[in-house]
Amino acid sequence: MAYDKFTLLRSTAVPLPIENVDTDQIIPARFLKATKREGFGDNLFRDWRYNGDDTPKADFVLNNPIYKGKILVGGHNFGSGSSREHAAWAIYDYGFRCVVSSFFADIFKGNSLNIGILPVQVSAEFLDKIFLAIEADPNAEFEVNLEEQTITIVSSGESESFDINGYKKHNMINGFDDIDYLQAMKGEIKEFEAERIY
């Protein structure tokens, strides 16, 4: 599925300073019953966001109108647990294009890159600075520059660089995906397959 190209993102951010946010929190299993990729954002963080009777929980950050933006900032080890890509879909569908944390679970990170969400891994110290900047001013802006591989706290100018492999970076900047790449090399795959013992 094609996604928006990602080059430069300047936005306010939504803080979620909790560690080990697992994909069951991002989207509980009972909301995985769709056969189409539609509307998952409505159930993003469902059980942290809503009470059992579907009324919003006032103390959850997504229900606080002062926090908004296209960047979600999470605590250490974001996205652990299940491989459900629905977690990334829910984050994308809600309107986020970038998730910042000091550490990401592998599968979540891969899923995000595959659908056009940029996972930005920063140091624990820089993550604290981001949380403090949002605490001081919920309208604080951040600039994520994929070309330069930097994230900047706009008000202070403090910046840190992040890693991404050259292949994925190229894909995100151009909105390409892996399936396009693999379709173009099917001949090579066929030759490989013919030699397999299984």
Binding site: S83, R84, I107, I179, Q183, I189
Partner: peptide
């Protein structure tokens, strides 16, 4: 290992996925 749905589509269509070696 486990994969996401985009990768399920890759395997169905090309029997391959794109994986950095852990």
């Amino acid at each position: 290992f486990g994969i996401g749905t985009s990768e399920v589509e890759m395997v169905l269509s090309s029997q391959c996925i794109m994986q950095p070696k852990p």
